[in-house]
Amino acid sequence: MTATADTLIVTDLAADRGGRRVFGRVGFTVDPGGAVQVEGANGAGKSTLLRVLAGLLPAAEGRINNPFVTALAGHDTALKPGPTLASELTHWARLDGTDGSAVAAAAAAFALTPLLELPAGFLSSGQRRRAALARVAASGAVLWLLDEPDAGLDTASKALLATAIAAHRGGGGIVVAVTHGDIGIADPQRVQL
């Protein structure tokens, strides 16, 4: 029991969508600083696994021990088109209880600083993806759940993503990422769905 306070433990996890079993018997254990790379074909249930881990969907079977504050970057970026990127990020940072310096640092980490005063609706899809990642980074959460975080990113941005993940793990953070192929995560545990 001593290890459970600071370890993400997933045991025999299964999930159903629309009455059908999407995946079953998924299990892994991650300590602070660790990373899990979830791989699998389209429709194998990778996004479903992330949503179950995020608490957005119920698990059909199994157990999740997640003692960490969690942040999610899903397919939907949850950016409203009207407000500036800065005010969008600041709004979520307020809910997370972090301050403006966290937003500034996260924006800088994803090269968004020049875009902060633009309305979020003007951003390209890759820039929106980076904004969603910056929101995760600014949240101060320990566990990052990233759903295909490299989708739509150019080469330079992919490098920024890899750097941000490495820095987060270096600070004791945990990353669970759904990917198709490597995105520069060092020594990940691989979970095949």
Partner: peptide, 14 residues
Amino acid sequence: VADGTIDQIVVRGI
């Protein structure tokens, strides 16, 4: 619901 705002609310434990 469509743009993921609700997801972001729930994942924060709100």
